[in-house]
Amino acid sequence: MPVQCSSCAKNRAVLKRPKTGHSLCKECFFCAFEEEVHRTIVAAELFKPGERVGIAASGGKDSTVLAHVMKVLNERYSYGLELMLLSVDEGITGYRDDSLETVKRNQEQYELPLKIVSYEELYGWTMDAIVKQVGLKNNCTFCGVFRRQALDRGAIMLKVDKICTGHNADDVAETVLMNILRGDIARLRRCTAISTSSEGDEVVPRCKPLKYAYEKEIVLYAYFKKLDYFSTECIYSPNAYRGYARTFLKDLESIRPSAIMDVIHSGENLSVRDGVKMPVQGTCSRCGYISSQALCKACVLLEGLNRGLPKLGIGKHHRLHGKLLSQEPLTEKEEKKLKPPEF
């Protein structure tokens, strides 16, 4: 009892699109998926001819599909972009070393140059070493903050004009929910933007060409195209808060597939009333990276690691920034609070 493709009415349908409910065959699905990404890119004017674009590549399904689709579209529609892969090596044995092998294969398959920047060379710490010091509780904070900056530094080394990331619709919807749940108005306001505004020399603009692509379609695209991707969970503890948001969203999606687009739509159309206090974006007085505090999060985390006080960057310790900058010693009481947990 095969279902016919609702577009060409010739071939057997292979999937039901969550966004539209259409039943499509393989060829019509590839076409629809790629066209949608193309329309997203054109409508938001993400790229200009001649630009050098770094594709943030982890070896996972999203970035592998992104690299594939970007290459296809760049050729099909003559975007005139110079594409390259940019990877971050967090230094996680048994996870990132394996996924980087996938990225290296992608480099050959797609004939794109590849640059890998490592936490070790940038910060002097691998994630393995960080977890040894801080344990499994807050290590995702370190990884997330460092990755963001590492991508920027890699992009500057590669001299790219833009970075594109593989964030998909599910990721964006999760982030909207998380920011609502945390009351983070500043992030809530900017998390649905398809590209970051280019402010400051230290920051390379970023965009999300797969912002409206459902995870389901990304996985099936990779599966039917037989793309080579890496799919193991990070060996360190998962981002629990996001996990809950994700489960909630998946439950909603199973009842109402449009839920993901609906959450994004809500996020995009929220407006914050006048008078709501927003953090003022400045720059880090140590490294020059964008920061709303005197010291950026990466510098505080790094300082904590180097001083043997890993909790320095976890939670709010803004009051200590002055002391850190002027290299003043912390009091015994302050130090006690920031010591690593006993194992």
Partner: peptide, 25 residues
Amino acid sequence: AVTCIMPWKRFLVQVPTNHKCNGIY
């Protein structure tokens, strides 16, 4: 009804992990 008429050839399951990443199937 489907399985009565047509035996399975392929059956693929995609599982999300607890982490945000990685489709599993």
